[in-house]
Design a protein around this nucleic acid. Structure first.
Length: 579
RNA sequence: GGUCCCGUGGUGUAGCGGUUAUCACGUCUGCCUGUCACGCAGAAGAUCGCGAGUUCAAUUCUCGUCGGGACCGCCA
């Protein structure tokens, strides 16, 4: 069957087509009228071909970015007219006939070739034009390649792809749900899944040994550069599996994907395992950027008897940086300014001088003993600088130290942009204290198995660790994962600790509660974030660059006009009244 | 909910208490037979986001508001 618009793609015409008549279709990228001879660059998804005509009026009605179908004869260009920038640079199509298919208005909202420099608000409003830009277009094509790769990877590992419902039940824990009112059932609602968590566990009960899905997930929370309302996870789960079984597959998926799609250096397997507690101390965050060589040390005991008021009865953390004692005063002042901009009361530091004496605002409060302890603990050398972060609350001091570490890494250019540094942060605590609710809640996931099983609950709640881990790359959380708690008694005990009794669990997690009474395999799984993988591989600063039709950071889509109001009739049908 | 940054022709920008509001690209008209982000000559196009205040005078300063972005909270 012949296509009526074309028999060749623009970018695929070669010298072997010379002297033949071809028909091409695409967008008019550019028109160059020389008076007597006129050139048109015609673009389709495969590339650009130059059209030429000696009839100076043939293209009078043509505008840039219009779609046309055009017939002509391929001919060789003179050698001095070759254009090495395009794949078809040695040939051109001589034409005298074309059909206008979709005429474009003669002034576009922006020029296609420079669209990535345009205000994002306008780019997103005219996304269909923005995605004609090669870079934007290539990102969406690249996403398709990654999805293809992940599917074939999971297929080669014998995973079964299973699709789970999008309209499902609201879950009481975790992020806010997007809810969908039911028309047939007055006052009842579906919810869009935050993740297919329960379903994948039920698939395990259903006997699927290895499940995966490229799963859409929805969370009604505020967005960020790396967080959007709806995103995709490579969700997978293994039956009769341990933490190591899952992490090994995670490592294979991440390593192979990053190796295949990038020339950057990728951490070798197995990835470093860092216990959660250690990550918080050394890096000040549970998603450390390991490209940054700086590490945080605890200096609380070194300052146990300090006379420096702000350090008394406080937790003290230090970051040592070698060879920067000669930095200018303004360099240090900039760091102090940064510290105050993030809400730190101040940041102290000492520099080690040539004669091994200390210099800096804190030095006069130090005793000789404290000085020598610091030299030992922080491994201070000539020209080292030791920064101090102090606070009465551990959570706050950890956080500040992490931010200072990151800022120092940036300021000193310590972060190698040509690396993907992976690690697995594990041994996560199962519970954490919620200051607002004044009670303990699940730190991550109510469904994770405590380390030590049900016996683990015999210790202080803060010390209960889970088979719960995160894959982290360059400071981004790439995936969380866990061994699930398949022991109903143990699961109930966990819920019990945060104030849910058996009746509540039975109601809220009816399916799981019942299913686990009919023979459940121990199971474990994880869910890499596909959008973040693509963002990192493409070195893009935000997720909008790798999503075809993203809303803005407030969740508004100015192209579609969503969210939007609905009619009274629609509201009545779903029994909703707007206040 | 909080902090910070941004808003000037279609697009990207310059500017600043008094300008005819800068420049480039795009658009339009004309010229041009080999360009390729063609070139040349000319033209149109801006309520300087909106409102209030300070001032003889505000695009410029102040406050508010709206819109956009980054971060914190939040994201099991």
């Amino acid at each position: 069957m012949k296509n009526i618009y074309r028999n060749k793609y623009c970018g695929l015409i070669t010298e072997s087509d010379i002297d033949s008549t071809v028909k091409v279709a695409g967008w008019v990228e550019n028109i160059r009228d020389h008076g007597g001879v006129i050139f048109v660059d015609l673009r389709d998804e495969t590339g650009i071909v130059q059209i030429v005509s000696n009839d100076d009026h043939i293209f009078d009605d043509l505008t840039k970015e219009s779609t046309i179908s055009l017939e002509g004869i391929v001919r060789l260009r003179d050698e001095d007219n070759y254009n090495p920038k395009i794949s078809t640079g040695t040939i051109e199509i001589l034409t005298n006939k074309f059909d206008m298919l979709g005429k474009a208005k003669n002034e576009l909202p922006f020029e296609i070739i420079t669209s990535t420099n345009v205000n994002e608000e306008i780019r997103l409003k005219y996304r269909y034009l923005d995605m004609r830009n090669k870079k934007v277009h290539d990102n969406i094509k690249f996403r398709s390649e990654v999805l293809k790769f992940l599917r074939s990877k999971m297929d080669s590992l014998n995973f079964t792809e299973v699709q789970t419902p999008i309209l499902t039940a609201s879950s009481p824990e975790g992020a806010r749900d997007f809810i969908v009112p039911s028309r047939k059932f007055h006052g009842k609602f579906y919810a869009l899944p935050q993740a297919p968590q329960i379903f994948k566990e039920l698939l395990m009960v259903g006997g699927f040994d290895k499940y995966y899905q490229i799963a859409p997930c929805f969370r009604d929370e505020d967005c960020r550069s790396d967080r959007v309302l709806e995103f995709y996870q490579l969700d997978f789960e293994l039956g009769f599996a341990t933490e190591d079984d899952v992490i090994e597959i995670g490592e294979e998926v991440f390593y192979d994907t990053f190796k295949y799609f990038s020339d950057k250096e990728v951490s070798s397997r197995p990835f470093r395992r860092i216990p959660y507690k250690e990550a918080l101390l050394k890096y000040g965050t549970d998603k450390p950027d390991l490209r940054n060589p700086l590490e945080i040390i605890d200096l609380t005991s070194e300052f146990a008897n300090t006379t420096f008021k702000p350090f008394q009865n406080s937790i003290i953390r230090g970051i040592k940086v070698d060879d920067i004692a000669s930095k200018s005063n303004s360099w240090f002042n900039e760091l102090v300014d940064y510290a105050s901009s993030i809400g730190m009361p101040g940041i102290g530091y000492i520099s080690v001088m040539e004669d091994n004496s200390f210099k800096g605002p804190i030095d006069k409060f130090l005793t000789d003993e404290e000085r020598s302890n610091l030299i030992k603990k922080a491994d201070l050398k000539k020209n080292s600088v030791l920064f101090f972060i102090a606070n009465k609350k551990e959570k706050i001091v950890t956080n500040f130290a992490g931010m200072i570490r990151t800022e120092l890494g940036k300021k000193l250019n310590l972060i190698d942009p040509n690396k993907f540094e992976f690690c697995v942060v594990n041994d996560m605590p199962l519970f954490e204290y919620d200051e607002e609710e004044k009670k303990y809640t699940f730190a991550h996931n109510p469904f994770s198995m405590p380390k030590g099983g049900i016996e683990a609950f015999n210790q202080d709640i803060e010390n209960i660790l889970g088979y719960q881990f995160d894959f982290v790359c360059n400071g981004f959380e790439m995936s969380s994962g866990a061994v699930r708690n398949h022991d109903l008694k143990c699961l109930l005990k966990g819920f019990n600790l945060v104030g849910y009794d058996e009746e509540v669990v039975k109601n809220k997690f009816k399916s799981l509660y019942t299913a686990f009474q009919y023979g459940v395999p121990p199971h474990a799984g994880m869910a890499p974030g596909i959008d973040r993988i693509i963002m990192l591989l493409k070195d893009e600063p935000n997720l909008r660059e790798i999503i075809a039709f993203p809303p803005n950071v407030s969740g508004i889509d100015n192209m579609m006009g969503s969210p939007s109001e609905v009619t009274e009739q629609q509201l009545r049908e779903v029994h909703i009244k707007i206040r």
